[in-house]
Amino acid sequence: MKAEKKALADSIVASVEAKLSDATEQSKKVKKAIEKSADKLAKKLVKLLKKEEKKKKSGEKTAKVKAAKTPKKVATKKAKAPAKPVDA
């Protein structure tokens, strides 16, 4: 997870710095702020990806379990004929 997060953060930093370098020269504070924000974003993205992957796996498991179960037969009852009045 850490390696994936680090790679993603580095990619984000490179992309943002490339866009900003066209406009102005960056100070150390700006670079540090970009890196900090990229780390936070990468952490959130990795967390979401893991959550989605886990959800996908659990969905596959439930599908397999449902497919393995055989449907139960439902007994159908015949409707009773209405009772006839008894003449006494």
Rank of each mutant, 00 (worst) to 15 (best):
A7L: 14
A79T: 10
K44F: 13
G59R: 04
V46F: 02
D10C: 03
A81D: 11
K73N: 10
K54A: 10
K43L: 00
M1S: 15
A3K: 15
A3W: 11
K55E: 15
K80Y: 13
L45K: 01
K54T: 10
K57D: 05
E53S: 06
K43W: 04
G59M: 00
K72N: 12
K6S: 09
K5I: 08
K80V: 08
L49H: 13
E4S: 11
A3R: 15
A68P: 06
T76F: 03
V65Q: 05
E25N: 06
E25S: 15
L45Q: 05
K77A: 11
K6T: 11
V16I: 11
P85D: 15
E17N: 00
V74Q: 08
K19I: 08
A79R: 07
S11D: 11
E17G: 02
K77L: 11
A88G: 08
K31N: 08
K54C: 08
E25W: 03
E25D: 14
A23G: 07
K57N: 10
K69D: 04
K36V: 13
K36T: 08
L48I: 07
K36N: 00
K36R: 13
K66I: 09
A83E: 14
E17S: 02
V16M: 05
L8P: 01
A68D: 01
K19P: 09
K54D: 09
K73T: 08
P85L: 15
K51I: 07
K6V: 00
A83I: 03
D10N: 08
V86Y: 07
A38D: 10
K31G: 00
S27W: 01
P71M: 15
L45T: 04
A42W: 00
K51A: 09
K40E: 08
K29N: 01
S37F: 06
D22V: 04
A67Q: 00
P71H: 14
S11C: 12
T62I: 14
K56R: 15
Q26H: 03
K61W: 06
K29H: 12
K5N: 02
S11P: 03
A68T: 07
S21R: 01
A18W: 04
I12V: 06
E4Y: 08
A18Q: 13
K44R: 12
K56V: 01
K66R: 10
V46S: 11
K31R: 14
K73D: 13
